[in-house]
């Protein structure tokens, strides 16, 4: 498919190369953007997970905390990402181009999504399993670490997959305010197209974003498999 796209005849510009031609001509910067894009997509998910675990635990244990968590995360989720990127400097005191804005904004989205997922996952542990663990002498903390959390892993990783794929698309939007990542391919393509359509950077950006999303998604699927070995034995039986 990539080879076929590489043959798209480019119009405009001076002796324009195809998709692969464009890539080899700008290899260094494109790989640099890809690297940054991956980091800006993954780091907020890791931060979000670390924040979501205690929040989700609290919401699964305290009756009052769950509705509060659901409404607050719903509100945060409603705010358009560009607005959040732009509002961050006046909240954090950072510069407008600081990548920290993107990381914090996307971490907020991730927490809004994941805290609820963690609460649902921990809440879905069967009552008899929890009672069996208590009867075997697990303290509440031991039960959380050795029984509840492992059983909630498939639910949590499903939430992580949604978060990371969404982040790849959201990170690209930050390029319109000047943060360097794969979205720069779109803004560059837009500027180069002012005289006539020039597709290679735009199509390359879309292909790389989709590939990055698929790869990150696959990584989470593999981590999920590694963390839940009992599911594989069940499938073999």
């Amino acid at each position: 498919m990539i080879a076929a796209l590489g043959r798209i005849p480019a119009q405009g510009g001076q002796s324009p190369p195809g998709l692969l031609g464009y890539f080899s001509a700008h290899r260094t910067e494109v790989l640099h953007w890809l690297w940054w894009h991956a980091w800006l997509s993954v780091l907020p998910v890791l931060i979000g997970l670390v924040v979501s675990l205690p929040l989700g635990y609290l919401a699964s244990r305290r009756r009052w905390a769950y509705p509060a968590l659901v409404s607050v995360s719903g509100l945060l989720y409603t705010i358009p990402s560009l607005a959040l990127f732009v509002a961050m400097p006046s909240i954090l005191g950072t510069k407008i181009l600081d990548p920290v804005n993107v990381v914090v904004a996307l971490s907020i989205y991730t927490v809004a999504l994941l805290a609820r997922v963690v609460a649902d996952g921990l809440g879905a542990v069967p009552e008899d399993v929890a009672q069996a663990a208590t009867a075997m002498g697990y303290t509440p903390l031991q039960r959380l670490a050795k029984v509840d959390l492992p059983l909630a892993v498939p639910v949590i990783t499903a939430g992580l997959r949604v978060a990371v794929v969404a982040n790849v698309s959201l990170v690209a939007i930050a390029a319109t305010i000047g943060v360097p990542e794969l979205g720069q391919l779109f803004t560059n393509g837009f500027q180069l197209s002012s005289t006539g359509p020039y597709y290679p950077p735009i199509v390359l950006g879309i292909v790389l974003c989709v590939v990055l999303a698929l790869v990150l998604d696959l990584v989470i699927v593999l981590v999920n498999r590694a963390l839940t070995p009992w599911r594989r034995t069940e499938a073999h039986r």
């Binding site: 698309s169 690209a172 939007i173 779109f186 393509g189 837009f190 735009i202 950006g205 974003c209």
Partner: peptide, 10 residues
């Protein structure tokens, strides 16, 4: 799964 900004500009 397509990036919104890419789709928009394309």
């Amino acid at each position: 799964a397509l990036p919104t900004l890419g789709l928009l500009i394309l």
